[in-house]
Design a binder for these strands. Structure first.
Length: 592
RNA sequence: GGGGUGGUAGUUCAGCACGGUUAGAACGCCGGCCUGUCACGUCGGAGGUCGCGGGUUCAAGUCCCGUCCACCCCGCCA
């Protein structure tokens, strides 16, 4: 089969756009052979480009040259065809495709390129292993349903830019080769040839640079920007990912939240998803109290209740021990949950074991009292107080975990999700956005024996808490907020510290000494000293947003060339070893 | 680092519990026939390091041990 060049041929139309009103025109189409039906004396080819598929008829009587070409075509051959677009006769119309009322009768054809047999079919008839699809990602990306997601991603990025532009935001770029900073995720390091022994770090986020833009007076900054974190991967975590990053001056949390809601409203409208008039809000404390987690999935109920007070004086050893150790007892109430079988109940401890819970006590609330292994250990007033505390109704199942607050909340939060999945309580067409606010500024890290920032070290405490930083750090609330969708954290942000004295105070609280602060963040402290305005912002996970709105199961589905769980690119086999010469130039010697 | 699932033809899978002729199917691929198909039809054909290494056995795709890879989860991800 001889290949030909384009010559003077110019594509006149795209395949998927052709309709009855184009009939009669002479067209030049170019694309891939999506399928071929060879009847010997007549050949049909489905010609595909980004816009869709159209049927081309190769008939020796109407296009002898084209017919000879058609006999040699194979799937995914690249071909140019010239002919007359013709209305199909009523009995040959195909309503399954958008162009099914017409077909191109080929007069001339040119084979522009051939294709070896594909490693997997592109028709989606059978599910192909992801590893295979990623190795040949350029083929996987030919599939219309895969392209759909990336076209959506493009449209969303454009809509976000347009919206933020209309709100007065300026898109500014920040360096990828930057400084490694302490705290947070592991950095990807880039050695400097010009400065042997020194390294750049790829940014985990443009956090400090966007604050500097505020000091510069740009007032409102945004960027759709790649970020890098060298941590282990998950379905919703890739080592490089994209954020919608923004920062605004003279802003209160309200202002950042309003703009964020504007972005999400645009995104939802693009995806045909309903966006609420006002987004719900929960304080961090409330979220933990009711759901045990700071990113609750609000598509279903199953709330938690603290029953510690109801059993304050109990003799029941399991509860007693937890309370005496400064812990708590909480209940997950499963309405109509008594139908859970004994076997299903027996499986529950396994669900919470990874979170440290030693067990799950269960109670079936029945008209004649409690059916439960722990019923005999609790007094009637205690039972009544528990029912009161969690609003128990007859027919409910109550699930108890008693332990430290951390173990209780993590266990029950997980159990809540587990049961919702198992009992299919999660409506797939609900979109529950919620703001989580009033995060603590810091929390005690037992391993490091110091306070660590819950959000990051530049987050501002509430103004009314400025004086409590020394006396009661754990009680200080931050001006920080997370936006959560269906139990996934879409993004988070905060009002930043804009005064050097407060920033130094927070560094001290985090155990970052004066010298270390000077050395690592000197430029920030300097900048804050030159008239930094109050400012704050947020970063939204762009890939996660695309994933949720397109119904994709994994971030890999919305990233064109993603990494596997071992952070390998199956297409290029990166990361790879490098020449000894490259290492020598960099002054690097491998330890292994 | 830990727990779980999977790995057999180009692809998707069966075969494995209970070891035993030449490892099957569908789709795809190659060749023949076919002028209205659109999951075209039809006749024929090729195609396998059963992930890899070791062990048990007269005999291993099948049993045992190790290991690699992919995926899900925990740790980790301010």
């Amino acid at each position: 089969m001889t290949l030909e060049g384009l010559g003077d041929w110019v594509r006149s139309h795209c395949c998927g756009t052709l309709r009855r009103e184009h009939a009669g025109q002479t067209l030049t189409l170019m694309g891939w052979v999506d399928g071929r039906r060879d009847h010997g004396g007549l050949v049909f080819v489905d010609l595909r480009d980004r816009t869709g598929v159209v049927q081309v008829v190769f008939d020796p009587a109407r296009g002898p040259q084209a017919f000879r070409i058609a006999e040699m075509l194979r799937n995914e051959s690249v071909v140019a065809v010239r002919g007359v677009l013709t209305e199909r006769t009523p009995d040959t119309v195909n309503l399954n495709i958008a162009t099914g009322e017409v077909e191109l009768v080929a007069r001339e054809a040119r084979v522009l390129n051939r294709s070896r047999p594909l490693p997997f079919a592109l028709d989606g008839a059978q599910e192909v292993a992801e590893a295979t699809r990623l190795k040949y990602r350029y083929l996987d990306l030919r599939r219309p349903e895969v392209q759909r997601r990336f076209i959506f991603r493009h449209r969303l990025a454009k809509a976000v830019r347009d919206y933020l532009d209309s709100e007065g935001f300026i898109e500014l770029e920040t360096p990828f080769l930057t400084r490694s900073t302490p705290e947070g995720a592991r950095d990807y390091l880039v050695p400097s040839r010009v400065n042997p022994g020194k390294f750049y770090a790829l940014p985990q986020s443009p956090q400090l640079f966007k604050q500097l833009f505020m000091v510069s007076g740009f007032d409102r900054y945004f960027q759709i920007v790649r970020c890098f974190r060298d941590e282990d991967l998950r379905a919703d975590r890739q080592p490089e990912f994209t954020q919608i990053d923004l920062e605004m001056s003279f802003a209160r949390p309200e202002d950042v939240m309003r703009v964020t809601e504007g972005i999400l409203r645009v995104a939802c409208s693009l995806a045909g998803v309903e966006f609420p008039e006002t987004v719900r809000r929960l304080t961090y404390d409330e979220a933990i109290a009711r759901y045990g987690i700071d990113r609750p999935d609000l598509r279903f109920g199953l709330e938690l209740s603290d029953v510690s007070a109801a059993v304050r004086t109990t003799e029941f050893k399991v509860f007693r021990a937890a309370l005496d150790a400064g812990g708590m007892v909480k209940v997950l109430r499963l309405p109509q949950g008594e139908r859970l079988s004994r076997r299903e109940l027996d499986a529950l401890p396994e669900v919470v074991a990874p979170f440290g819970a030693k067990g799950v006590a269960w109670v079936r609330v029945q008209s004649d009292g409690w059916q439960s292994p722990i019923a005999k250990f609790l007094s009637a007033p205690e039972k009544a107080a528990i029912e009161q505390a969690c609003g128990a109704q007859i027919g409910d199942l109550l699930l108890f975990v008693a332990d430290s607050p951390k173990v209780v909340n993590e266990s029950l939060a997980h159990l809540r999700l587990h049961l919702a999945h198992q009992l299919e309580l999660i409506p797939s067409n609900r979109w529950e956005f919620v703001w989580i606010t009033d995060f603590p500024l810091v929390e005690w890290d037992d391993e490091e024996k110091r306070y660590v920032a819950v959000h990051h070290p530049f987050t501002s405490p509430r103004e009314e808490d400025w004086d409590r930083l020394d006396a009661d750090p754990a009680g200080v609330k931050a001006l920080a907020y997370d936006i959560v969708l269906n139990g996934t954290e879409l993004g988070g942000g905060s009002i930043r510290i804009h005064r050097p004295d407060i920033q130094e105070k927070v560094f001290r609280l985090l155990g970052i000494g004066e010298e270390e602060a000077r050395q690592k963040f000197g430029f920030l402290l300097d900048a804050l000293g030159y008239g930094a305005p109050p400012h704050g912002g947020i970063a939204l996970g762009f890939d996660r947003l695309v994933m949720l709105l397109t119904g994709a199961q994994s971030l890999r589905d919305v990233i064109a060339f993603p990494k596997t769980q071992k952070a390998v690119c199956p297409l290029t086999d990166a990361p790879s070893e490098v020449d000894a010469k490259q290492l020598r130039e960099l002054g690097i010697k491998l330890a292994t």
